[in-house]
Design a binder for these strands. Structure first.
Lengths: 258, 258
DNA sequence: TCAAAAGTGTTTAGCATACACCCATGC
DNA sequence: GCATGGGTGTATGCTAAACACTTTTGA
């Protein structure tokens, strides 16, 4: 326990020295697997309390760079779809009952705890990652890091439940005017693969033919000669993103639903 | 000059005591007047450098409350349309040439200046206000506060030009799925009034008949018996927002263009 | 009486939706 | 050969866009 307290003091020193105060980052990391949308959560040491992964910003580090770095530390991924969606700054989000209880369970001395648990403004990012590639790793305060089904998320610490809700809402809206899929699907993928990604995110099924028409209409897909063999049924065509046009579409989103 | 330096030290003390560090707020305040869209800018003391108005967050103050308070201090307005649009956190935005020049012109001792000019993460808000009601007042660093035509904005300090650009882009998009106009137009207004507001924001003209159909289709307008007299031409009907339905529409934005 | 603004309705086109049949493959 | 999934085109409806004439009013 003295060991733990010592580590904790080290952490505080590191935070004070290398990171800017009052600002944190929180992540809603969406994972896509098996037709299910999942969110990565952390369980706090010695408790049953879960929260979103987070991070802080170093001096001389850009906000976005801090976001990518933190996300990499938590998931091992480096090339990801990452999007800022809202900045949360309510004071009350830090003064809820469960958090005080949690602090007690963590066994942190109150004077030390208040040093890292002060009131922050938090920049919310959501990420879309390939489920299978993630190597989740907990941070100092937490001991477990795992995926939760989007519709089975427990009550979270702080205001993290509303963060998840808003992130999902933003992601779904974004889907209607921005292309999504690059770095989330393998280089070559089939139309049903892409459709399943969309259906998973939207939480509803879509018409195959209309979906295909819409996607091809965007003009960012390139159909290959190859087909995907080995499946149990008719071999579907493989597609690839036309990276140039994909980036173009990301840039001037007006191409999609003006 | 000693007086000034003294005031400045007072300011630093106030900032350190009452406000959280590392986070600031910047405002893109859009004013609507005479078929022109304008932005409120501040000129820094003794210089020709302009910037957006800003603010900081008190301890124990919600982010949004801080935004409303700061905006009120700068414009005198309290009931306004205020919307968070992005959080800016690049480091370089603080190390550009013109700013160092500006500091020199301000005549601030470098060691003191660095205390308030450190690297911040800034939450961007845009506001829509009724031009005529605003009483612009500069802050400690600035001596002039006035409206600029949206297409004649000079090069601004920091990354404020890109803030304006993004704010405008966000506002225009928002216009397609949220109602706008309440607290911006007088209680009773005509359809051409409302249309001019939209045209001003979008920077393009719209078809009268289609516009009217769309607005009435939203079901948030109530047509009054009265007409607006005194104009030089045919008297237009007056309308009023159905406040209940207006708020409803703001809440579930899905009513508009899903 | 003329110019300028406001009221109003219909036609058209484009896009999203709904929908059904044939083909390939593994079991 | 059959079940499963994948490939493809057309008909329909709704919403947005285009468009013109009449009315009111003050000058």
């Amino acid at each position: 326990m003295a060991e733990y307290k010592n580590q904790f003091q080290q952490l505080i020193l590191d935070l004070k020295t290398n990171y800017i105060p009052s600002v944190s980052i929180d992540f809603v990391i969406f994972g896509f697997h098996d037709g299910q949308l999942k969110v990565l959560l952390l369980r706090w040491k010695g408790t049953d309390e879960w929260s979103l992964p987070g991070g802080r910003i170093r001096h001389e580090e850009d906000l976005q760079a801090a976001a990518y770095r933190s996300l990499n530390e938590r998931t091992g991924l480096s090339e990801i779809f990452l999007q800022q969606f809202h900045t949360f700054g309510d004071v009350v989000r830090y003064i809820n009952f469960s958090q005080q209880e949690t602090l007690a369970k963590l066994g942190l001395p109150e004077d030390l705890a208040s040093e890292v648990m002060g009131r922050d403004v938090s920049v919310g990012y959501y990420a879309l990652v390939e489920f299978a590639n993630v190597i989740p790793s907990p941070d100092f305060f937490t001991e477990e890091c795992r995926w939760w089904d989007i519709d089975q998320i427990p009550p979270l610490l702080f205001d993290h439940n509303s963060m998840v809700t808003l992130a999902l809402k933003t992601l779904r809206r974004q889907l209607s005017y921005q292309p999504i899929g690059y770095k989330l699907l393998p280089d070559k993928f089939t139309m049903p693969d892409l459709q399943q990604l969309y259906e998973t995110i939207l939480g509803q099924s879509l018409d195959r033919r209309n979906f295909q028409k819409r996607m091809l209409g965007y003009g960012i897909l390139e159909r290959l000669e190859e087909r995907k063999t080995g499946g149990a049924h008719k071999a579907p065509y493989l597609y690839r993103f036309d990276k140039e046009k994909y980036q173009q579409a990301l840039a001037d989103e007006t191409l999609f639903v003006g």
